[in-house]
Simulated scan of single mutants.
Amino acid sequence: MGGVLLLVGAAALIVARLLTQPLRQLETASRTLSRGDLTARVQIRSRDELEHLGNTFNTMAEAVENQVQALREESARQKRFVAAFSHELKTPMTAILGYANLLRSGEQAPDKRHRAAGYIYHESQRLEELSRELLLLFGLEQGGVALQDVKLSAVWGDVRRSLPELEPRLRWEGKDAAVRADRPLLTALLRNLILNAAHADESGGTILFWNKETADGVRVGVTDAGTGIPPEELEKLTEPFYRVDKSRSRMSGGNGLGLTICAQIAQAHGARLQIESAAGQGTTVWITLKEVTP
């Protein structure tokens, strides 16, 4: 009888440990998660409610880890944005204050005074453009774009009229089509892409505006034969104030918001900005818009 009781007690202890082991795993993983280790997971293979509870815990832990990672990335992007914006704002303000102080310091020679006034005017224009594009960017992030039926030929005409200095280099390849779009915003997108293409190809080569029908809609894009973009830079292009060639962009007056705005315009149209490029082989950027069928 004593032996039987001992065996029953041992069996009960083993069963109890088997039943409580999953709960101990969950307790340990929960404590690990609460200390900030978001990789904590459990491995429960009991084929019962405890296994289901373990899978639910793992799903929750993975969701928490993904959310925290997304928050960290967003915080890092915001810090980069603030740092870049502060630098972008400081540069023209320093120039304006410096030349304004020069003019206040006393009578200057006419050529020196004219040069100082020119710098002040140029940097003030940069500030105005920066504020205008920031307002557009913030407005796009709020959404609310009204799409209408728009002819690509009309948009092409708007783009050409806005860039008279580049018109000899522009060429359109494709058949006219009607798409669902916001005409001013689509014009702004294509104008920015063409300006980027002109900066990338300073030899004066042709800048191609093109469109073609696909299974998903009408693909509309711009292609240049310029310097191209290294592969490691492609993912960063739509970040605010990011420049591939920082010195050239600043000399030409760019502020690094063009492709950011283009990406937001594409998103407002339910599309995504696509970029293909290789160093020394030019760049192609496009979006796909919904076609209006007759």
Rank of each mutant, 00 (worst) to 15 (best):
G280N: 06
K290L: 11
V285C: 13
A268L: 06
Q148I: 05
K290Y: 02
W156N: 13
A279K: 15
S252P: 02
Q148H: 13
T91C: 04
L89Y: 07
G204D: 00
A215D: 12
K246F: 11
F81R: 10
L13E: 04
I261S: 12
R160V: 15
A29C: 08
R113S: 14
A16N: 13
S34P: 05
A63R: 13
A116H: 00
L89N: 01
R72Y: 08
G106N: 06
G174Q: 05
S153P: 03
L208P: 00
P230V: 00
L257H: 08
L71I: 12
I96L: 02
G98W: 10
A198Y: 02
L71D: 10
K79T: 08
L19K: 09
L33C: 10
H122I: 11
Q281M: 13
V64E: 02
P231H: 06
S131R: 06
E62N: 09
R24A: 06
R248A: 11
K90P: 04
A263P: 09
F57G: 04
S247H: 14
R115Y: 14
D149A: 15
A263L: 02
L170Y: 04
M60K: 05
L103E: 03
E74S: 12
P168D: 07
L33R: 11
E202N: 07
A181T: 03
I265T: 02
L147H: 03
F85K: 13
G282Q: 08
M251A: 15
G221Y: 01
P110D: 01
V68L: 02
E73G: 05
Q78S: 08
E129S: 14
G9T: 13
V82Y: 09
V292T: 12
E27F: 10
A29V: 00
Y119Q: 14
T206S: 07
L134W: 07
I275G: 08
G221C: 06
V222Q: 01
A263M: 06
E173W: 05
V220M: 02
R47Y: 12
G217V: 00
E123S: 01
W172G: 02
A116K: 01
M1G: 13
R31Q: 15
L23Q: 01
I120A: 01
E202D: 12
R243Q: 10
Q69P: 00
R104M: 15
A197Y: 01
A29E: 03
L189E: 07
Q67T: 14
I96S: 03
G36T: 03
A266C: 11
S34C: 11
N101L: 15
A95P: 03
I96D: 04
V179I: 08
G270N: 07
V244Q: 07
M93D: 08
K79P: 00
P240D: 05
L166I: 05
L189N: 01
D182Q: 09
L19H: 09
D111H: 11
R243M: 14
T187E: 12
A225T: 05
T39H: 14
T293N: 13
T20Y: 14
R45V: 14
D224R: 04
R126G: 15
Q25P: 02
A109W: 08
Y119E: 13
Q264E: 15
I120E: 02
L97M: 12
V222R: 05
R248I: 01
L130A: 05
R104W: 10
I194C: 04
G118H: 01
